[in-house]
Amino acid sequence: MNAAIDNHWYPVAMISGIDAPRETLLLGKKISLGRDGGACWVKDATGTELPTVERFGHLWTSPGQPNRDLFTIPEADSPGRRLVDVGSVKVKCSPLRAVENFLDIAHFPFVHTDILGAEPHTEVDRYDVKIREEVDEVWATKVKFYQPQAAKSAAGGITTEYMYRVPAPTCSVLYKTCPPRPGEWDIITLFVQPLTDEWCEVWPWMALYDDDSTMSEMVSFQQLIFMQDRSILENQLPRKLPLDPGMEVPTQADMTSVAYRRWLKKIGYTYGAQLVAA
């Protein structure tokens, strides 16, 4: 039992995908989940019911006693957005590596070539990062990057503005320039279920303004992007995320990941982290 790890909310299923009861892993321990009539339930290995929250199309639970409610994304409730259940992909890497990759833009030209980035537009300008103490979240703002096809709804290359938010250790929310509606933000999230400290199930979810694409097209686009990342994530050494400086070399473009690692250390979130240089 480690309160700093157990007292968080974790995604464990897409609500629309729950039919028969099933087992999964959370933080290396077996849990079961299902639905009785309208309400979803989650139980630990001893059959004890765990707390649940149904939000963002997903079922969330906690093996501990969360000392605050699951975060909210008020912008996602505004009318006209389409809510996209992307489904899940399993990845053999630390859940923290999966989140950190989501916070990174410098890989776009090489991993998401001609979609989220392309040479020679590789430069990452300075942006703002801070740990917002009042809400205990990591935020990066004024992140700008040239993108050949920023979204399914984008017609051509644009300089996209991003804001990244880390509201929980294994979750991130991206607010991104919305091609059809300048002035609004598309919302793309990465909810990561730590199966173990080196294996995770990733549940992307989106709230987009896009009146033209089919739901299947939007799902495909996001799965394409995440599967490009998966081949990176399964080949980083070590699989765990090093929190101590020295093991890996950040640059100015990595300010978000530096802040994320610092914040994880501050709140004592060590599941999936490597603390001593191997």
């Binding site: 890989h107 991993v111 040479e119 990176i232 980083q236 050494l237 070590p238 890996e248 950040p250």
Partner: peptide, 26 residues
């Protein structure tokens, strides 16, 4: 077989000129 930046395997990278580049961030 490890890029010092983010630990990515350099064997997944590419040779460009007389250099070896990492596939993750180039």
């Amino acid at each position: 077989d490890r890029c010092p930046h983010r630990g990515m395997r350099l064997s997944h990278g590419f040779v460009r000129g007389e250099t070896l580049a990492c596939i993750y961030h180039g």
